[in-house]
């Protein structure tokens, strides 16, 4: 089946990002297709490569990046939510006149339309949040 995942909370503050990762891994192991993982609200904070969790803790962003690399996952960070919270890719940094970007490998910034498209194209949408 084709599944999409919506992550609405940032990493570490709430378990939702961890739950979403475990769910995504299990879905891939079951042979399902993950059409897209969309990050909204504070969920966009999953996409910053600047987070440095303690070494004995999991690195949630790196886990997403690794999943994206291994399985070609489409990790989409909502542009409107990202702009509010200071998550920028190279293009956005340039457009907004900022001195750098912080998006992690495997993530891309795009519009809310990508969430609606995921709803249209996927057999199921599962939401993780607070």
């Amino acid at each position: 089946m084709k599944l999409s995942v919506l992550v609405n909370e940032g990493p570490y503050q709430h378990q939702s990002a961890d739950s979403a990762i475990q769910f995504t891994k299990a879905a891939l192991e079951r042979g399902h297709e993950i059409f897209r993982v969309f990050f909204y609200h504070d969920g966009v904070n999953n996409g910053t490569r600047f987070a440095v969790p303690p070494q004995d803790d999991r690195n949630i962003t790196q886990e997403w990046t690794a999943l994206a690399k291994e399985h070609g996952l489409d990790l989409v960070v909502c542009i409107a939510a990202a702009q509010r919270r200071g998550i920028l890719d190279e293009n956005e940094a340039k457009r907004q006149g900022k001195d750098g970007n912080n998006i992690a490998d495997g993530f891309r910034i795009s519009g809310l339309g990508q969430l609606i498209e995921a709803g249209i194209q996927s057999d199921r949408m599962v939401i993780f949040g607070d």
Binding site: K25, A27, D123, G129
Partner: peptide
Amino acid sequence: YGGFVDLVTEYDKVQSWL
């Protein structure tokens, strides 16, 4: 988590009460 995935596919849709 595998069982979670199975439930998601078995039922018609998911309502996540956040």
